[in-house]
Amino acid sequence: MKCYELQGPEGVDALALVDKPVPQAGPGEVLVRLKAATLNYRDLLTVKGGYGSRQKFPLVPVSDGAGVVEAVGAGVRSFVPGDRVIGSFFENWFGGEPSEATMRAALGGSVDGVLTEYRVFPAHALVRTPAHLSDVEAAALPCAGLTAWSAVVKLGNVKPGQTVLTQGTGGVSLFALQFAKMCGARVIATSSSDAKIARLKQLGADVTLNYKTTPDWGKKARELTGRGVDLVVEVGGVGTLNESIRATRIGGTIAFIGVLAGPATADTRLPLMVMQQQRLQGVTVGSIEDLQALCDGIAMHGVKPVIDKVFAFDQVKDAFAHMASGAHFGKVAIAIG
């Protein structure tokens, strides 16, 4: 089989396409033929060696993949060859509260990921692909989809009539917009591109703000709602946190996910967060149980991931470059095999 290995922390140029034997499924395991993968910002960090001490080399990168069961090992009764499946980001986080042990095995970081034609998964770490999704669409769910689900549905507990603010047009943000609308919430979406703003409106955003022409977008969002938003899905990180604090109502929540916007400014508004009793909620993907809930939810409501562009398996470096450019709207995908 062919797979990509990251040989060291030198960036995309350290990715090598190699030949390996097809692995065999042992007891309790499932051999999956991967059909598609999608990229996350975390994957860009990983190829630069930014995953810290848990990152190993050589490493098969990328966490999000979908495929078809090729064979099952002894004792596996939950899947049969031909079943369409996706793998959980955390293979050992079954459900409940996270812990160091349950979050130790993270695909494409501390353990090999899915940028390969075949991979063996523990049977317990697989979830059936929602029938209404293609393999490319399903490959967007394990990290980006589940992170947004955790931020909006599980931890954000968004209710009908509430207001959610999303940032940008990456995979997590678009999923968050879709899930917020699914929950009956109003959505304020930001972007620096008027062309992308038009597409955000088509996707269901009720209000849009260009954060380049409206740098005080947090203040503007608070004015538009009269009291502030109930939830901010914060993918920018400390670089956008000040405006997120301004946007959030007293007692509201900031779901803190990303690091896209760089370092914080010196004039942090953390005291305002304290004064307004806001909650800063860290979000790191979710459990296998949460992934199943996500799949059940989107199947019921017919929600489909937004796919920006699909690259061939021999165009992986181009896919990473496109992701790094920031030109994408939704998920950057790779067709495997």
Rank of each mutant, 00 (worst) to 15 (best):
126 L>H: 13
126 L>W: 09
129 T>M: 12
129 T>Q: 14
131 A>Y: 12
131 A>F: 13
132 H>A: 11
133 L>A: 06
134 S>K: 02
135 D>I: 10
136 V>N: 13
136 V>H: 05
139 A>W: 05
139 A>Y: 05
139 A>E: 11
140 A>C: 15
141 L>S: 13
142 P>I: 04
142 P>S: 10
143 C>R: 03
144 A>F: 02
147 T>N: 04
149 W>S: 14
151 A>V: 02
152 V>E: 14
152 V>N: 10
153 V>G: 01
154 K>D: 15
155 L>R: 15
157 N>Y: 00
158 V>H: 07
159 K>D: 11
162 Q>L: 08
162 Q>C: 06
165 L>C: 02
165 L>N: 04
165 L>K: 04
166 T>N: 12
166 T>R: 13
168 G>Q: 11
169 T>K: 03
172 V>D: 09
172 V>R: 09
173 S>G: 05
173 S>V: 13
174 L>P: 11
175 F>G: 07
176 A>D: 03
177 L>G: 12
177 L>R: 13
178 Q>G: 07
178 Q>C: 04
180 A>Y: 10
180 A>P: 10
180 A>H: 12
181 K>T: 14
181 K>F: 02
184 G>L: 13
187 V>F: 02
188 I>R: 00
188 I>N: 08
189 A>H: 11
189 A>C: 11
189 A>R: 09
189 A>G: 14
190 T>S: 15
191 S>M: 07
192 S>M: 08
193 S>N: 07
193 S>F: 13
194 D>A: 06
195 A>D: 15
196 K>G: 03
196 K>E: 07
198 A>I: 06
198 A>W: 09
199 R>N: 10
199 R>I: 05
199 R>Q: 15
200 L>N: 08
200 L>E: 14
201 K>T: 13
202 Q>N: 12
202 Q>C: 07
202 Q>L: 13
202 Q>T: 08
202 Q>I: 01
203 L>G: 05
204 G>M: 04
205 A>F: 00
205 A>N: 15
211 Y>H: 09
211 Y>L: 00
212 K>S: 08
214 T>M: 06
214 T>G: 01
216 D>Q: 06
221 A>N: 10
222 R>D: 05
223 E>Y: 06
223 E>T: 13
223 E>I: 12
225 T>V: 07
225 T>C: 04
228 G>L: 01
229 V>C: 05
229 V>I: 03
231 L>P: 04
232 V>Y: 07
233 V>F: 01
